[in-house]
Design a protein around this nucleic acid. Sequence first.
DNA 1: ATAGGGTTAG
Length: 587
Amino acid sequence: MVRTHLVLDVFVTSRLIALCVGTPLFKNAASSLVYALKVFSQVPSPNLFMYNALIRGCSDCENPERSMALYIDLCRLGLVPDNLTFTFLIKSCTRLFSLVSGSQSHCQALKRGFDGEVHVQNALLHMYSSLEDVEAAGRIFRSIKCLDVVSWTTMISGFCKCGDVGSARRLFDRMPERNMFTWSVMINGYTKAGRFEEAIELFELLQQEGVKASETVMVSVVSSCGHLGALELAERAYNYLIRNGLSLNMTLGTAVVEMYARCGSIDEATRVFEELRERDALTYTALIAGFAMHGHVQKALHYFSKMLDAGIVPRDITFTAILSACSHGGLVGKGKEIFDNMKRLYGIEPRLEHYGCMVDLLGRAGKLEEAEKFVLEMPMKPNAPIWGALIGACRIHRNTKIAERVGKILIQLLPEHSGYYVLLSNIYAKANNWEGVNIMRGMMKDKGVKKEPGCSAIEINGKMHRFVMGDKSHPDIHKIEKKWEEIVMKIRLVGYTGNTDEALFDIDEEEKESALHRHSEKLAIAYGIMKIGAGAPIRIVKNLRVCEDCHRATKLISKVFDRELIVRDRNRFHHFKDGACSCLDFW
DNA sequence: ATAGGGTTAG
């Protein structure tokens, strides 16, 4: 173009700029944009089309503030912006997270009479809802004369972003027509809000309406199945993918690997991983974290080195996964080595989470003094999870001395968490320090602290049945309790003595069992034995840690009833079989 | 000649 003087043709140069902005001609889109800006700088009298193309380009790049400069520039030249200019400009403000620039752009659109254009309005709607001004977004939404699918979807997305999924759903039900974006926004909204069952119900509705789900929708569905730990639903979702020929791209593939790992099928997770066409750091991390959860350290290490061999650069979360694998496997030396290499070889500065993993690693292995020293000497201020890891280690190794010191710190940091008052009170009681006991009891009463209630879930035919300690609302509760009593009779014959533990270190488990209330997973297990045919494993998901008594009981059940029980607790999986647990009683 | 809404970890 230079040689033929075509560059002087404003129309042709405009196309060149638009082309550079719109397609990654070079290795990445950013360098294409840089090239476009270079061409632009040589144009003696640029037109609006060029400005629009560049503002759009900048709205997608890392420095969206360049759009503002371009806008000011074009006004100075005496050019008149149009409706497209504003859609691009407003998008840049959204990407900048700048309400100031956003309102200024809004004013400009208003002054120039483009505030009635649906594209501009939708861009504004998106901007206000992304900048967490759902009120302003609502005002825009109500002012739009001819709402279209994008308007509805953007408003729904805005409600989801601020956590108001209820309002989002009401709009979803009211809107005249939906497309795949809409379904995706709503289903993802439920997943993000932790309302996994509703996400899956909506996916079922989508199927009933004869719509074919996109890969994006399936990422949310698959991730919801994983969070629930519902293997049947997981299998249904996976079959849906296969049946509908949806390709396992990196994102969806990673989500599926994670789903199977979280549902206790680590073999299936591995199989899917092996069949993926492409994998990135997150894909590997999902599998490594899965192995960590299942206590398979060697496999975690194996895939970690496979990842390095494949030339994939680990990310910070890769290290939380691999360090937690080392911790569950008791590989202190290996864990230390990896932690040291993090910064030295991979240039990743360890964050609080990684320090937490190290405290857990040292503590679990019984090196409590070293762990405490590590906490006191770490370069940043330890937070509650760090102290929590240390006190958890004191719990495993019954170290009351360090636990008392750490417990006091934790009470200050988390005054609403009752576990630490109970712990200190128990320690004082054991040491006959009744004054200490009274102080702790008093502090607990003053603050009215309560523990998170224990909850265990079991999936029967794709439906989750939940048991909360003390909650008798399940329709079959009497039969279930009878069944549990029968189970206890049978395991007593092989040495079960019931809960005789002093529960001195009662931290992350459920509240103490009483004559009236028993731990939620016992009910879930009894229900599983009633409902799930012999030979099939019983899978339980619970929100807290398994307590020692439940762990002992479950091991015996696996032997006496000749059943496999797979329990996911807050930290990891326990596979019970033939009277033993995969965690080797170390959790 | 150019438009606006969605995705995986802890």
